[in-house]
Amino acid sequence: MSGTVHKTGILATIRRSVAWRALATIKGGVAGGFLLLVVLGAIFAPVLTPYDYDIQALTNAFQPPSLAHPMGTDEFGRDVLTRILYGARTSLSVSVVAISISLVFGMTLGAAAGYFGGRFDRMVMVVVDLTWSFPEILVALMLVAIIGPGVTGTLVAICVAYLAQFTRLTRSQVMALKTETYVEAARGLGASHAFILFRHLLPNCLGPVLVAGMLATGDAIILEATLGFFGLGAQPPTPSWGGMMSSGSGLLFKGPWIILFPGLCIALTVVAINLFGDVLLAKLDIRDRLRVV
């Protein structure tokens, strides 16, 4: 019987979330559909393309887009589409994983700071505000310089760069929610701090924080690409969108498609994420307003 209370936990909240309703709108449907396509392309890359991403065929270099190579080939004769599909694996997984880790840490830190307040809150906020006062790219560059280039460095850099944002957002949400009477009522029922945090506060602030995480993923893809462009991201021959643009930048006149398609991919993916996030946000607002009425 008491097991049913668990249903109101984080999983059920996602299931009841507005994501499904957001997909039903035109804007959300197109954006969400595109994202789904990119993700599926990344997952099924080996099935979708007959080429390998790392086998060089110099005789085949600088082929313009054709039926055999819809996006042409690069300076080593590798299929650009294949590299984009495999590159999506790096770019997307690094961004999503980094943001997810950042979300978990940020929510924990923010929820604790907002709920307990006092000296702990002030300490957390000083650190958070310090990192927030620098642009994300600067923080990321600094961290990669310390850890060294590669996937791990990029992951940690993105993770730390966005931590401040999630911590602050969760903290402000929790601070607003903890004055709700149902939190006081739970205390009156003898609930522990953990019970109040995990059953009441976190589920209720999950929506806005997840949307913020979604929007940050778009930014993180650009950040990952930027690090890759500087040669600080995933190391060759592992393809990444930023790395592809970097190598294509010198060949702009010889083979413009080499830089064009990865660039287009980054732009469209980020726009799609932002659009979908917008729709989610709109749906969320309306629901919250309905709840008040």
């Binding site: 009841r16 009477t181 006081e184 739970a186 029922l189 019970f195 209720n204």
Partner: peptide, 27 residues
């Protein structure tokens, strides 16, 4: 205790069953 505001004293994400089981779950 019963609180004044019946609109904010129940968690909007809890069903009534959850609300009524909360006293047990809390302990």
């Amino acid at each position: 205790m019963v609180f004044q505001d019946p609109y904010s004293s129940l968690d909007p994400r809890f069903t009534l069953r959850d609300c009524l089981l909360e006293p047990f779950a809390a302990l």
